[in-house]
């Protein structure tokens, strides 16, 4: 038992250490770098949490969920309203937002996870529209189509980064536990999973609830970052954004989701800045092209990736320290880099 306790404490140590490092780094960035950069990184962090949530239910468990933005909205509005109207402190509102999104996840997931494939996608998409309809028609409470202004600013970069680190730690533990293996078994073959005693409905609902809670957390972070909420923020494009991040990073790779969030968040910004930069030289045509044409690049990025790395940048594997080190070593010795860093320790 002692050895097991040591492992447990070591795990907590890893969390404590990475959380502290992340906090210190994020605080330093916030203090030293321009607000623009800090803000951008905050958005990357928020998107990472969203993507991680979607990856759990769709990448690991194989249940195609198109209602992710609906759960974000639920979390975001709950947390904002609790703070504005009831003056609850941020941490409590934040947790309540996630809990409410998780509860909705349970309500939606329980009946609909008996459906498979396209049907599940349609039902979850429908759920997301219901959420928007509710938000648009409860003006006294949510501000309706006018939006909800005056959401207190609470999502500093360190807060957002800390959320990512804790989420990543918990999820990477989860996917390496029996629960995580059962999620994957459900994705692989439901009938086979049942035949080895896996209660597939339970694990699907569980993945769905955890995923919606993460969406709720991210929605709440977003609201307290933008200081404003509007139903249109949470339309289906928001879901598609998470889908793109996860597919780009690789279905079933947690670190991949973060890489995906980073790329998808930064690509439009890079183009916007490039356009401004080019305009500075008086090249208005080129600037205009960059400003409007980045969507083409965006699409191309996906086409190229689907051809070159159909399983995503991380190919379903995880980014680990050993992986990075051996990758760097191979780069240095110029022995050619054949694959992306991989982890063999994952079982």
């Amino acid at each position: 038992m002692d050895g097991f306790r040591v492992k447990f404490i070591r795990g907590l140590g890893v969390l404590g250490l990475s959380a502290s490092v992340a906090w210190v780094l994020a605080s330093a960035i916030r203090a030293r770098l321009p607000n623009y950069i800090t803000g951008l990184l905050t958005v990357v962090a928020i998107n990472s949490v969203t993507a991680l949530g979607w990856n759990l239910v769709s990448g690991f468990t194989g249940q195609f969920n198109l209602g992710h933005a609906g759960f974000m909205a639920a979390g975001g509005y709950t947390s904002a309203i609790l703070m504005i109207r009831l003056k609850w402190p941020f941490p409590v509102s934040f947790i309540c937002g996630a809990a409410f999104a998780g509860f909705l996840g349970f309500l939606v997931g329980f009946p609909s996870l008996r459906l498979v494939g396209d049907y599940l996608a349609i039902v979850t998409l429908g759920f997301q529209y219901i959420i928007l309809a509710v938000l648009n028609n409860t003006t006294p409470l949510t501000g309706g189509g006018l939006g909800l202004a005056g959401v207190p600013f609470r999502t500093h970069l360190p807060t957002a980064t800390l959320t990512v680190v804790v989420t990543l730690w918990l999820l990477s533990n989860l996917v390496r536990s029996k629960q995580g293996r059962c999620f994957v078994a459900v994705k692989e073959d439901e009938i086979a999973a049942q035949s080895v005693g896996i209660n597939t409905t339970y694990y699907k609902v569980l993945a769905f609830i955890i995923s919606s809670m993460l969406a709720g957390l991210a929605g709440s972070l977003l609201g307290h970052f933008m200081m404003y909420l509007h139903p249109d923020i949470f339309n289906y494009l928001k879901t598609i954004e998470s889908v793109s991040m996860v597919i780009l990073g690789g279905l079933g790779s947690l670190t991949g989701s973060i890489v995906g969030a980073l790329c998808i968040t930064l690509v439009p910004e890079v183009f916007r800045n490039l356009a401004t930069f080019v305009a500075g030289f008086g090249l208005m045509r080129a600037s205009d092209f960059l400003r409007r044409g980045w969507m083409v690049f965006y699409a191309l990025l996906f086409v190229v990736m689907m051809l070159a790395r159909p399983r995503g940048l991380m190919g379903g594997r995880e980014l680990t320290w050993e992986g990075v080190r051996s990758f760097a070593a191979r780069l240095v010795t110029l022995r050619g880099v054949r694959g992306w860093p991989s982890s063999k320790s994952e079982t």
Binding site: K7, F8, N173, S177, K178, R181, V196
Partner: peptide, 27 residues
Amino acid sequence: RTAAHMGAKYSLLDGLFHTPRYHMYES
């Protein structure tokens, strides 16, 4: 290993936090 899940008598919280209980059953 996936099919051996029934021998792992630990809860969701044990799975999330990798408690000593998790490590014991996993080993």
